[in-house]
Design a protein around this nucleic acid. Structure first.
Length: 422
RNA sequence: GGAGGCGUCGCCUAGUCCGGUCGAUGGCGCCCGCCUGCUAAGCGGGUUGGGGUCUUAAAGCCCCUCGGGGGUUCAAAUCCCCCCGCCUCCGCCA
């Protein structure tokens, strides 16, 4: 949710941002008009209500005929107050309806354009030249089968498309990655958190996932629960309707959770393997900080993501996601994409977003500084999304015989430095 | 799932039976001041959050806020209904 003050004082900036995202700039004018109506309605209601209260007090002490006269007036007022209150509430709802449709204002340095208009900020590592090594790389599905690490057939049998089992070394790989990620996060000062994966509507709405992203969210109709697509949701809502001590910021949490995604509208996309699945586990970094520190914190989150991938010796690049491809809450987003040899391209493995005060305003998360309160900034970043990192490890570290080299920090949990075909 | 109890402006708490003087009591904590070799104690004052209005800004004024929503009433923390959360006991169950 955007600050009404910004909307009133600098509507052009919001219009420009909407346009850069490929969204409707006229929403700004609709919001301003709704705000105007709301304020008029509130003023009307409050005037009547003030009169009702002051007359009510006189009724209490008045006697006889005077009391009867007052009662006649207040009875009439009572109905008027109810009507005015209803129209004030209607106007409030109309405004928040428009306000909820407006996306966050993008950072000025974010590249303008659609999905393909990102800019590449960094390349780390070099993709292996399998041709020079003299063999054709296997993809992660074949490797997973060969190693007894991934079972997509039975995943489909039991739960349908886009479900899978991690078996044997695959399961151990997940545990090793989670351990490594949590250890790194704790060392960096994050509080590790195991979070709920079912949340009530306000948490989902507050984090901005019920807008354009709504079709990708699982909803349990009978109980009105949503399944989170990321622990970002439960972590952001953790402090909802709270006033935080500004001196205690930043608060950094590492969420450990399963994530659920409907992947609607992706039929035919990544149907093979475990790149795009309905359920996976993920460690997510989440920060509450002062708005003026958000940009610097965003860089720190990105640095922690790189630190993690560096240890796994994966070639990757960092991209600055273009305005048209940002989530509604994000002002800026950096993705890290790991090299996937059998696809011959880089694929997203992490994503970090600066949501500035957008989520905090919706969720009622403020900080106290001096004698006033104001919204905090929230940021999130993937430390590890298990399936995609497993894909990257298997494919990048494979050897001609189908065995896979295990990066050093994972060897203890795996109990070996090479995963051998079964 | 069943029965009962509870939910008040950071924490604790009075008030709810019997509607108006609650524009919410007191304590703790915190902030400011006085006193004071220093500290503590003592004394005085302040201390929910949101919105509207006016203003360069502040102050002021007004409205809302007693878990949430609805109802009764001229008037609701207080009466009625629904919901949510917490606690205790019973049942069931990893």
């Amino acid at each position: 949710m955007l600050d009404l003050k910004v909307l009133r004082d600098d509507p052009d900036a919001v219009r420009r941002s909407q346009t850069a995202r490929g969204e409707d700039p006229s929403l700004v004018d609709a919001a301003l008009a709704a705000d105007e109506q709301r304020r008029t309605a509130i003023a009307g209601y409050e005037l009547l209500r003030a009169e009702q209260k002051s007359l009510g007090k006189q009724v209490a002490s008045a006697q006889g005929g005077e009391k009867q006269a007052l009662l006649a007036r207040t009875k009439e007022l009572s109905g008027q107050v109810k009507l005015a209150e209803a129209s004030a509430r209607e106007a409030e709802e109309a405004l928040s309806g428009v306000q909820l449709q407006l996306s966050n204002v993008v950072e000025p340095d974010a590249p303008i354009g659609g999905e393909e208009d990102f800019t590449v900020l960094d390349h780390v590592g070099t993709p292996r030249d399998f041709a020079a090594e003299g063999f054709e790389p296997r993809d992660h599905v074949d490797l997973g089968k060969l190693l007894g690490a991934i079972d997509v057939e039975r995943g489909a049998k039991v739960s349908g498309a886009r479900f899978f089992y991690l078996t044997g070394p695959g399961a151990l790989l997940e545990l090793a990655l989670i351990n490594l990620a949590v250890q790194q996060a704790v060392a960096a000062g994050f509080t590790p958190m195991v979070t709920p994966v079912l949340v009530k509507p306000p948490a989902m709405e507050g984090t901005g996932f019920l807008g354009q992203a709504a079709e990708n969210v699982f909803h349990l109709e009978q109980d009105d629960f949503y399944l989170v697509g990321t622990s970002e949701v439960s972590l952001a809502a953790y402090h909802s309707d709270e006033i935080l001590d500004a001196s205690a910021l930043p608060l950094r949490y590492a969420g450990i959770s399963t994530c659920f995604r409907r992947e609607a509208g992706t039929y035919g996309k990544d149907t093979r393997g475990i790149i795009r699945v309905h359920q996976f586990d993920k460690i997510e970094m989440f920060t509450f900080c002062k708005p003026e520190e958000a940009v610097a914190e965003h860089q720190r989150l990105l640095a922690w993501e790189k630190q993690f991938l560096d240890q796994l010796e994966l070639p990757y690049r960092v991209i600055d996601v273009a305005t048209g491809d940002l989530g509604s809450s994000a002002a800026r987003k950096f993705d890290i994409e790991a090299w996937i040899p059998t696809q011959g391209k880089y694929r997203e493995v992490t994503s970090t977003s600066n949501c500035t005060e957008f989520q905090a305003r919706r969720l009622g998360i403020r900080m106290r500084h001096g004698d006033r309160t104001s919204p905090v900034a929230t940021l999130n970043g993937t430390l590890v999304a298990i399936p995609r990192v497993i894909v990257a490890i298997l494919e990048n570290h494979q050897r001609p015989d189908g065995s896979v080299r295990v990066p050093a920090p994972l060897q203890a949990t795996l109990g070996t430095d090479v995963i051998q075909p079964r």
